[in-house]
Amino acid sequence: MWGTYWEWDARLTSVLILFLMYLGLMALWRAVEDPSRAARAAAVLTLVGALNLPIIKFSVDWWNTLHQPASVMRMGGSTLDKAFLIPLLVMAVAFTLLFVTLHLAAMRNEILRRRVRSLQMMQASRVAFSSGVGTGSREENASKGAA
């Protein structure tokens, strides 16, 4: 559109920061083993990352770089020709629906993952109980575990 693959333009750079935040969020979520602690840390990072959203929206108005000023959602209506605006809006709706569908499917997977985790913990506690680990003192359990 602008005759370049990459430019340190305000919109492109702010979206790159958002992308890096998403990667950081995914890494943080996977780095912490306990899901409730991971969820708390991810929630804090999400709230901090949300500060970037208005910066992305208004970056084209605040900084005069390669990207054109706001042309779709602006006072006085869109400046785009209908030949571009209609396909753009159709695809925006399509990708939003795709995102919602994938998000719901991923939520179902996460519920299953947590169910598997709790069953695995139940299995581990049964094994520990049947082998006698966990019924004695801490020192006794440690020596049983070592044996």
Binding site: L102, A106, N109, L112, V116, L119, Q120, Q123, R126
Partner: peptide
């Protein structure tokens, strides 16, 4: 890739759940 990832993840989780339930570990 995103669609494939979600589908494969669902199959993996249901299979692990089935294995656990088969071994007598139930909710």
């Amino acid at each position: 890739l995103l669609i494939g990832w979600v589908i494969i993840d669902y199959r993996n989780q249901t299979e692990r759940l089935r294995q656990l339930e088969r071994s007598g570990i139930t909710r």
